[in-house]
Amino acid sequence: MQALVIVGHGSHLNPGSSTPTFSHADTIRETGVFDEVREAFWKEEPSFREVLRTLESDEVYVVPLFISEGYFTERVIPRELRLEGWDVSAWDSEDGVSATYATSRATDVEKTVHYCGPAGTHDSMSDVIVRRAESITGESDMGAGFGLAIVGHGTERNENSAKAIQYHADRIRESGRFDEVKALFMDEEPEVDDVTEFFESPDVVVVPLFVADGFHTQEDIPEDMGLTDDYRTGYEIPTEVDGQRIWYSGAVGTESLMADVLLERAAEAGADVRGVDDWTQSEPEGVADD
């Protein structure tokens, strides 16, 4: 038997934090390729500490629904899962955006655990960002006249969070899908507050590289960009700011295509995902694979 565990941050305060984890887990459950699919959280239950014991499978694929490689994915999650002999070098990701997977045992269960890199730094995440832009604009063929801003938090506990944003911005820029692509941040330069200054295109799609909608994506970013003075009154999509149309998508992590990224992570670690309908492993739609 094989199980997939999707690990997310969760929240003691925000009930919506776990929603993307649940919905992607359900999408994968429907494919039927795993005998068990379970969600686990840092701040909710089951905890990382106790999820493995709830499973009957002896092969477990753990995929973090996190944006970047760093504090949580490299330190907290492996520690809490009690992975034997974990060392980040097993991910072979010196640049902070190339994590693979590591196979070991957990000390409290008789199981083989394949611990995968986070969804956020997988190549196919670029496709999810593009898909998010497509779905918010209703344009499947965005070309001339569209710019794309990918927004990250910025300075966090480690530098890798910015690297993931930059990585996907570079990949999508190279694909030529947009006239302009920029990486912007909430609390460091270049700042999302000045979004219109960074683009010449009349239409700018803004996609926050966040797992779940919450305080940052629903309150801070819309207000910072000038879509609204008060997030509670809402805003139009698109909203005209300084003569440009801003298409704000909300957290990319809620995009249903995210489930494919999680599946790709597990498949690369050896999970048997044959039988998934309409799933095209490593055949990105809009982004050249390098």
Partner: peptide, 14 residues
């Protein structure tokens, strides 16, 4: 039961 009270059955069994 595991969705309502996660891991309680597993720990009770242990």
């Amino acid at each position: 039961v595991d969705f309502v009270y996660p891991a309680t059955v597993a720990n009770w069994h242990r």
